Computed example of a mutant assay.
Amino acid sequence: MTTGRSVVVEAPRRHRLATADHPPEPGPGEVRVAVHAAGVCASDREVYEGTRADGYVRYPVVPGHEWSGTVEAVGPGTDPALVGARTVGEGFRACQVCARCRSGETSLCTAGYEETGFTQPGAFADHLVLPARLLHLLPDDADLTAAALLEPAAVVAAAVLRAAPRPAERVAVVGAGTLGLLAVQLLAASSPAELVAVDPRDRPGEQARTFGADRAATPAEAAELHGRFDLVVETAGAPGTARDACLLARRGGRVVLTGLPAPGAHGIDAVHLSVSQLTVASVFGAPPAAWAYATRAFAAGLLRPAPLITHRLPLESFGEAVELVGSGDPEVGKVLLEP
Rank of each mutant, 00 (worst) to 15 (best):
H311Y: 02
G180D: 04
G89N: 13
V283I: 14
A289Y: 00
G237I: 07
A281W: 00
P63A: 07
A281N: 10
A183W: 02
A208P: 02
P80F: 06
E221C: 00
R93N: 09
E331A: 15
L182E: 03
R133Q: 03
G117W: 04
S190D: 10
G180A: 11
T119D: 03
P219F: 07
T235G: 01
L315M: 14
T51H: 11
P28L: 08
V332Q: 09
A188F: 05
A148W: 01
A11H: 02
V74E: 08
A11Y: 00
A236E: 04
L231T: 07
T310I: 07
G259N: 04
R215I: 00
P200E: 13
R209A: 14
F92Y: 13
G69K: 01
A158I: 01
Y59H: 09
H311A: 06
P219V: 09
R304M: 02
G112Q: 11
P63I: 05
S282R: 13
A154L: 03
E10L: 11
P80A: 05
L302E: 12
P288H: 08
A176D: 11
A262Y: 06
A249V: 07
V335R: 02
R162P: 01
A81Q: 13
G240W: 03
G69S: 08
V33N: 04
L138T: 07
R52L: 15
P330W: 07
P63D: 06
A132Q: 09
E206Q: 15
A270K: 01
C95G: 09
E114P: 02
L225C: 02
T295A: 02
D141F: 03
V156H: 03
A163V: 03
E115K: 12
V256N: 01
D79T: 04
H266E: 15
D329S: 10
P339K: 04
G205L: 14
T310L: 12
D214N: 10
T78E: 06
P26T: 06
P60C: 08
Y56M: 13
L181D: 01
A270H: 13
R254G: 02
V325H: 02
R312I: 10
V233E: 03
R5K: 12
T178C: 14
R170H: 14
L150V: 12
R32D: 05
F284T: 06
V198D: 03
D44T: 11
L137H: 14
A125S: 15
L225A: 12
V156C: 07
V62G: 03
Y113F: 15
P23C: 11
V83Y: 00
V9D: 04
S317M: 05
G301P: 08
G205T: 09
A18T: 06
V40W: 01
V129N: 03
L186P: 08
D329N: 15
T310F: 12
R251I: 00
R58W: 02
S191K: 04
Q207S: 12
S327E: 04
A213Q: 05
E66M: 10
F211W: 07
V35D: 07
A242K: 04
A262P: 00
L195T: 00
T2E: 09
P152I: 10
A94W: 12
